[in-house]
Design a protein around this nucleic acid. Structure first.
Length: 555
RNA sequence: GACCCCAUCGUCUAGUCAGGUCUAGGACAUCAGGUUUUCAUCCUGGGAACAGGGGUUCGAAUCCCCUUGGGGUCGCCA
């Protein structure tokens, strides 16, 4: 039988790194076995599902290069015979199996309200008892049930957990996992709104879609016995389960899609903000609901705006966060693969083709892993350094198109190419050249020279000082008849030979400061070429015009 | 709290399933030098771990048990 794996996210925001890793493992296992990867959208929660969110997932997966064979159709991906692949479009299917379970006595209707259940849970907690549903609905006589249903009284359907034998499941990563009878309560398989719960939908869909291997995060481990029970009751096959360990934050907590909201709530509380800040675009009642419900998530845009207003940095947990931060998809994938899996031996850097060739479930690590940004960054640097020049230019260009169009608008194609290549050796991410190169796209009159320590050192200190050298070299540059890096190098090194004892830095640094307003830039000759002669001279002149006031305040 | 899962350098891991070749290997981070027109690179070198206790065995990082520690789940979320 051919291998069929599935990645089944719920569409509640962007794809987070844990989900991305599950998707990668599903992809890799299927690819390694010439099997099929299915994508299924688990949107049975009417309160939390939105179309925009599920498209975000698709885009994230596509960016990573994790293409699905079957699933929602999107830019040439997806399709297939076992759809529909959105659970909200499969309600009639679940109804059929629900009826089967009720008819066969494996499930029953229950009429307690959510409030009643919450109260029962609270009471159990107070008495330090483990709460389990008391099966009161099982005592209802059939006529009463029929009458209540006929009246339209809301009900849920619960699965009647057999109490006789331990439930033993086999896991490809963890081995045998055993749960004693009586540990599980009669869990709900259909909600009052008519939608199935996750448990029922997953079991039915996995069977109907022919899924052979379920690779998912260990937070689902406790669900598997329930699914096994449902599968047995429905006469379904059990898939092979592989529960992958969790990904942690550096502080040891679980890396969660809710971390952004958590950070925002903490900040709001610590600042004692009671109402939604002006410009956050959040309604007052929605704000209150969000503050009071730690499972509720803001939309990405709302969260980003709010973080901006509060002046805090949101934790990077989504694939999209890393994309915007200038990481390469192949590096993120490489790093994610290493988090919880290892090909054995010393090899650490590899591509998707290598993963495809070498992936196996028995090399998945059981223990949880902390997400280490520093190592990811180091890998990204290595990948950028290994890239050939043309590719770097093209990919940086694409990055700017998506996130920093100002850099493309402000430069000619040639300037951008010089800019890119001048930055390649010093970039750890695509964002590095952008952040350190803002001065390239600023107007000449926007450059300012804050009196920081490195600026003071470059301009004011020493005898002669930077200003002196700048004044002298300004006219040399003005007379340059050619403005190429090579020619500039000749002029300036020659000048440094006679005026700075051959120490190019003595003159390069003051120029760098004058044209950039900071102490950091690409190699100086490239920098000047990108700026061009006019901008260079204008900026030097403006800088020199500040000489007096800077020297005054520096003494 | 109940149930379940896990345990090698600061971090990710190799080695564990088939016990000896392990005075435990690699990578990231860190520290000390060096190269460099700034930043970033780059080069050389150093320190750094088998959670603790019991077994089994000629021999245990590797097998068993207990303790401790960490984590997950306990929703009409998935």
């Amino acid at each position: 039988m051919s291998v069929r794996t599935r990645f089944a996210p719920s569409p509640s925001g962007h794809l987070h790194v844990g989900g991305a890793r599950s998707a990668l493992f599903c992809w890799a296992y299927a690819a390694n076995h010439d099997g099929t990867l299915l994508l299924r959208i688990e949107d049975t929660d009417q309160k939390r599902s939105s179309d925009a969110a599920s498209r975000g997932f698709l885009e994230d997966l596509a960016w990573l290069g994790l293409d699905w064979d079957e699933g929602p159709q999107w830019h040439g991906r997806g399709g297939g015979d076992t759809g529909p692949y959105e659970q909200s479009n499969r309600l009639d299917i679940y109804e059929k199996y629900l009826a089967q379970l009720i008819d066969s006595g494996h499930a029953y209707r229950a009429f307690e309200t959510p409030e009643e259940l919450a109260e029962a849970r609270r009471a159990a907690r107070q008495e330090k008892r483990a709460y389990r549903y008391d099966r009161a609905a099982l005592d209802l006589d059939p006529d009463t049930v029929a009458a209540w249903v006929a009246q339209g009284r809301p009900f849920v359907v619960r699965f009647k957990v057999p109490g006789d034998a331990p439930i033993v499941i086999q896991d490809a990563v963890l081995g045998e996992v055993r749960v004693e009878p009586g540990e599980l309560e009669d869990f709900i398989i259909r909600k009052a709104d008519g939608f199935p719960t996750y448990h029922l939908a997953v079991v039915v869909d996995d069977q109907l879609m022919g899924v052979t291997h379920v690779i998912r995060g260990q937070e689902h481990l406790a669900n598997s016995p329930k699914h096994a029970l449902l599968q047995d009751a429905l006469g379904f096959d059990r898939p092979i389960w592989a529960h992958v360990s969790l990904i942690f934050n550096p502080d040891g907590s679980k890396m969660s899609k809710r971390d952004k909201d958590k950070a925002l709530r903490a900040e709001v509380r610590s600042k004692g903000i009671e109402n939604p800040p002006e410009g956050a675009g959040i309604e007052a009642d929605r704000w209150q609901a969000w503050l009071g419900d730690k499972t509720m998530q803001l939309e990405t845009e709302e969260a980003t705006r709010l973080a901006g207003l509060l002046g805090i940095q949101l934790p990077a947990i989504n694939v999209d966060d890393f994309r915007r931060s200038g990481y390469l998809p192949e590096v993120l994938l490489n790093y994610l693969a290493l988090l919880g899996w290892s090909p054995g031996g010393d090899r650490e850097q590899f591509d998707l083709a290598f993963i495809r060739e070498n992936f196996s479930l028995d090399r998945i690590v059981k223990s949880p892993a902390k997400f280490d940004r520093a190592k990811l960054l180091a890998f990204n640097l290595d990948a950028i350094q290994a890239m050939d020049d043309d590719q770097f230019v093209v990919r940086l260009q694409a990055f700017c198109q998506d996130f920093e169009p100002a850099f493309l608008e402000a430069m000619t194609t040639h300037q951008f190419k010089v800019f890119a290549l001048a930055n390649k050796a010093r970039s750890k991410t695509f964002l590095d050249p952008i952040e350190s190169g803002r001065f390239f796209v600023q107007g000449d009159d926007e450059i300012e020279w804050p009196l920081t320590k490195p600026l003071r050192k470059a301009l004011c200190k020493g005898e002669p000082c930077g200003f002196d050298r700048l004044t002298a070299v300004r006219d040399i540059l003005a007379e340059a008849d050619s403005w190429t890096p090579e020619h500039l190098e000749t002029i300036l090194t020659t000048w440094a030979e006679t005026h700075c004892e051959g120490n190019l830095g003595k003159v390069a640094q003051p120029i760098r400061v004058a044209v950039s307003g900071g102490s950091v830039s690409p190699p100086i000759f490239d920098t000047l070429e990108i700026l061009g002669k006019d901008a260079t001279l204008t900026r030097i002149d403006r800088c020199l015009s500040q000489r007096e006031s800077m020297q005054e305040s520096s003494t």
